[in-house]
Design a protein around this nucleic acid. Structure first.
Length: 331
DNA sequence: GCTTTATGGAGAT
DNA sequence: TCTCCCTAAAGCC
C-alpha cells in the first residue's frame, strides 16, 4: 500500500519502459474496457507523479489518472529497464508482500538486484510477481504475454514489457484541464515543487489551522504523499503530540516537518522502503531492518515499549485511521 | 476455509 | 462522523 515514495518509483518505471513506446491496453477484469479501448495502440508521451497519484499522458492529450488507494498495485513483467535512481528491480510496485520479505531488498546494495546510482540502465527480467502463490508459475518459464492473475483492471503492454494494475481507488481518463485541476488541489510534493516554495506553502497552511497536526499531515491538500506510516513516524521524529493544533505548532517545528518529509521521501524513492529510523547507528539499524515489524519508531507498535523511553506506545483512532504515538516522548 | 487487515479517499449525513 | 469501495495475503480455526 503505497505512500508517495512508491508512486514516484512507479512513475520512473513507466518513464523508462513505456514512454515513447506504443502500448496495447486492455481490461481483463472488464471494469475499464472503454477507457482501455481509448488508449489502446497509443503511445505514452509523459508520466508525472504527484503525491499518491500518477498521471500517464498518451497521444494525443489523453491523460490516464491512477490512484492506488490502500490496495492498489502495479505488477511489471517482461523486460524491464530499471531507472538508475531506483535501487532495486522488482516485479511488484506499490505493495510489498507481508511476510517480512519486502520485494525491494534493504541491504543488498551490492547485490544483483541493486544498481549503482551512476550505472547505466540495464535490462532485467522479473517475475510476474514474487509471491509464493505465483512463483511457481513464473518459474515455469517466461510466458508471453504473462498469464492474467487475479483482478487486473488495466493491462498495458509494449513489445517487451507488461504492466498490470489491480485494485486502484481511481483509474480514469482525463483531459489536460482535468488533470491540471486534479493536481491543483494537491499540496506541495517535494519531488514536484520547488522545495523552498513548498516549505512556505506548507508552513503557511499549517500555521493558520486549528486542525490537529496529525490530521494535517494526512491531508493531501496540505502536503502530498504522506500516509499513515510516515505520519506516525514523522510526528515521533519531531517529538510532536499528534493532537497539537496546526497553528500552535512552533514555526520552526512546522518547517522541520516539511524538511523531514523532503528527506524521508528521497530515501523512500531511492530504496523503496519507508525508512524512518535512518538516524540509528548502523548496527542497530541493520538489526531493526532485519525484521519487518521492527522497522519503525511507533508505527504498528501498539502496547510495545517506546524505543526511546520505554513507555507503551498508544494506539488510537484518528479520523478512522490508526494513529500510533508515544504519550511520553510526544507529550 | 473463513475472517481480518491494510501504507486511501470520496461522498453522504 | 459514518459508510462504502477496491483486492490480496496474513491470521486464525
Amino acid at each position: 500500500m503505497p505512500e508517495g515514495h512508491s508512486v514516484h518509483r512507479i512513475a520512473r518505471q513507466f518513464d523508462r519502459n513505456f514512454v515513447g513506446r506504443a502500448v496495447t491496453a486492455s481490461s481483463p477484469q472488464g471494469r475499464f474496457v472503454e477507457g482501455a479501448s481509448v488508449i489502446d495502440r497509443r503511445t505514452p508521451t509523459e508520466v508525472r507523479a504527484v503525491g499518491k497519484q500518477m498521471f500517464l499522458e498518451f497521444d494525443d492529450d489523453i491523460w490516464l489518472r491512477v490512484h492506488l488507494g490502500m490496495y492498489g498495485a502495479w505488477d511489471f513483467a517482461g523486460e524491464i529497464l530499471v531507472d538508475p535512481t531506483i535501487a532495486s528491480a522488482n516485479g511488484r510496485m506499490g505493495q510489498t508482500n507481508q511476510r517480512g520479505t519486502d520485494l525491494e531488498p534493504v541491504f543488498d546494495t551490492a547485490g544483483e538486484n541493486s544498481l549503482s546510482s551512476i550505472g547505466a540502465p540495464r535490462r532485467t527480467r522479473v517475475h510476474v510477481r514474487m509471491s509464493e502463490q505465483t512463483r511457481g508459475l513464473a518459474d515455469e518459464g517466461d510466458q508471453w504475454p504473462p498469464p492474467v492473475v487475479g483482478q487486473v483492471r488495466l493491462r498495458l503492454m509494449t513489445d517487451a514489457t507488461c504492466a498490470d494494475l489491480r485494485g486502484p481507488t481511481a483509474c480514469q481518463l482525463q483531459t489536460p484541464d482535468e488533470m491540471l485541476a486534479t493536481v491543483a488541489k494537491l499540496g506541495p510534493d517535494p519531488l514536484v515543487d520547488d522545495v523552498a516554495e513548498g516549505e512556505e506553502r506548507f508552513a503557511a497552511v499549517v500555521r493558520r489551522k486549528p486542525t490537529p497536526i496529525g490530521l494535517l499531515l494526512m491531508d493531501q491538500t496540505v502536503v502530498s504523499g504522506i500516509g499513515n506510516v510516515y505520519r506516525a513516524e514523522m510526528l515521533f521524529r519531531a517529538r510532536l503530540n499528534p493532537h497539537t493544533p496546526g497553528r500552535d505548532v512552533p514555526e520552526e517545528t512546522v518547517r522541520g516537518l516539511w524538511r523531514d518529509w523532503v528527506r524521508l521521501l528521497a530515501i523512500g524513492v531511492e530504496t523503496g522502503q519507508m525508512m524512518t529510523m535512518d538516524d540509528l547507528n548502523p548496527d542497530a539499524y541493520r538489526l531493526a531492518m532485519a525484521h519487518r515489524d521492527d522497522r519503525h519508531w511507533v508505527y504498528h507498535r501498539a502496547g510495545l515499549p517506546c524505543r526511546v523511553c520505554g513507555t507503551a506506545i498508544v494506539l488510537e483512532e484518528m479520523a478512522t485511521r490508526k494513529l500510533y504515538w508515544c504519550p511520553s516522548c510526544q507529550a
